[in-house]
Design a protein around this nucleic acid. Structure first.
Lengths: 212, 212, 212, 212
DNA sequence: TATGAATGAGCCTTCATTCAT
DNA sequence: CATGAATGAAGGCTCATTCAT
């Protein structure tokens, strides 16, 4: 996670020759996943642009060229981080919207899982925000952008149903601002956990009364 | 401003030889200011890291090395942009806090000028957010960080007095998230102007009742 | 060595895959040493300031950025050249001074190895002299300066004991001037070898009689 | 001179409108001469390569482009410094050689004026030595090289006649080394003046006896 | 798979020099 | 003569990426 003062290397334990050896491809996928998480952490801590591939490799316990066995390039790594951030969130949001629930409850559920996702993927989120400009404009980012757009539309729909008295645009923007900003101040050892934070946000939107 | 598809050059009209020539130093300062604004725009549009000094120079109508007459380096340019963003806002916030006013009005005034400042300095803000990570960690950014911290403390104080029923931490974080995020969606040709946006934010915080 | 009209590249033969491969680190050190020597030659020939890193790289058979695997920068390269020049000379001078020997013999031994060192490291010496000003004033050169100072003090001590009738300051300065200047005219294919040159210098200092 | 801790500017007093105004051209030449001397000093202190034309201009009390009214470029400035160093020395050396004098006295006279010239033009000398490599190889330096060569030949001739027992090559090299090196250690406030230094050098060459 | 030497494009920056004022 | 803004060509250096081992 961000801002740790980790030891020397963000070493991802090289999988010891397990008793039950999974198929090679699976081991590869596992390692790739570990590297992805570690990379997100390193990028969140030291900055995506300021971290050279060599530095990253060292941090995760590989030599200069090692990462290229798992990712085609630095940008692919970034894409993978963003996908890992956006896709599962979108999937769950779809489920929530599909479920039968009173609108205000639906909003609560949605914001709850969203905040949870943000704080659980704090590193991914921080990296995403660092490169927001590139993601917003680059051609190779269409997929990520599409997912994000759809997610925002889902949120907007729920929001409109749950709080029809609010200005649609303003409320959505406010909610996006609040929730995404959470990644930058959330402290896992802090007083507030993700569900309390989410409840607080919803309370602001729906007004004190509705939150009770 | 951001996201324009400007023509070839963001040419800052070279001041025609004015009839009343200001002192040389003044001319220099004026030109420096123009360049600063233009640079903020270019960085906001194309990304700070993705914009080379040569590109920037061309955009502002200078040759490769020309900017170095006004700024010692790319980072100094960034510092100047951030100072121009943060300092005046902090100054006005201090005035608001010093003034005698009922707390809730004070909050309204503060958020109002804040949002206004953000949308008026959209470019600066977007650049600031692009480099948030570096600013948060680099040694040469202590001044900017200090100003930002003080501003947030002022906001917190006003917020606590105006809305004592809210969780201090959460409300502050929410407000920061909302307002700063504004730079990313505000459209000067859009339906909402800055004062309406500010009012909306305050309404969320104080609850619908208080806003009436 | 200096003033050769070398062919295109001062190619340091890339070590063919030896049958007994030395440890990797050793290979690295060997290559580094080769590059160091080659660089001294190139700088001596074409001038330190007039030689760009790209030119140097080409001369030693690498591409533009290749040298930076071995040296952190152009100045580090210069430091390494100077260290390779000064350190071993100082070490041997210490040994000579520590040894029990009649003063005049000691002087002969010292000047002998000194001249030998100078002509054997002609390139290093010429580079050192090119950058004398920077070395004398730059902060990062303290180590080199210290070594040089100590060496001169050793010479002075020996000189005073061997030729007490001479003006201390003047004799030392004269000797320094003579010996160091040797790098600029010595010709390995010339009539005089280093020991004859050294003997000539000592003879000047001690007077014809003493030299017999 | 070298190594002074001068005040802010090596300001060459702008010639106050003199009562008897010399012809414009003369004033120009005077100013040029002043600038030349000042430039030699600045280059000797801060290094020729490390001193930008703008820095130099400021040191001598001009703005960036001002020097170009007197010198066509940085290298011309260097040429002028070298000429001012070499030409008068060569001229006087010719006179000495032309004069009827016993050889050893001739050597004494020659070395005497040589050392005097070196210490009086310490700055010029130090600059000359800084750029020795370029001067030795550049095409535009033929004049300076020719003069230096002729001077050395004159010295050699005198030396051979005065000390026929010495190895021609070695003695010349030693003398050149000693005398030129003087610029680097001579201290005008030191114990030895230039004539004592010169006498010391001659004594080394001719042997103690001859010097009495 | 992993290594690490090597590549080469591109960036920031410096600076001698020019020129309109 | 002097100014100082502007030019534009290098130069030092970084770093994503490749590839022989």
């Amino acid at each position: 996670m961000a801002s740790r003062t980790t030891g020397r290397t963000r070493q991802v334990a090289r999988p010891a020759p397990a008793p039950t050896r999974p198929a090679l491809k699976v081991r590869y996928e596992i390692r790739r996943g570990e590297l992805l998480g570690a990379a997100a952490g390193v990028f969140a801590d030291h900055g995506y642009d300021s971290t050279s591939m060599a530095q990253l490799a060292n941090q995760v316990g590989l030599a200069a060229g090692g990462i290229y066995h798992y990712f085609a390039g630095k940008e692919q790594l970034l894409v993978a981080i963003c996908d890992e951030l956006v896709d599962p969130l979108l999937a769950r949001a779809r489920e929530v919207v599909a479920a039968e629930q009173p609108p205000s409850e639906q909003l609560g559920t949605l914001v709850g899982l969203w905040v949870f996702h943000v704080v659980e993927h704090r590193d991914h989120m921080l990296v995403f925000q660092q490169k927001r400009h590139a993601i917003e404009h680059g051609a190779q980012w269409r997929g990520v952008r599409r997912s994000r757009k759809e997610f925002e539309r889902l949120v907007e729909d729920v929001l409109v149903r749950a709080a029809p008295h609010l200005d649609r645009r303003l409320a959505l923007a406010a909610l996006l601002g609040m929730v995404n900003h959470t990644a930058q101040w959330y402290d896992p050892r802090g007083r507030l956990d993700s569900s309390e934070i989410a409840a607080g946000y919803v309370e602001l939107l729906l007004g004190g009364a509705a939150a009770e």
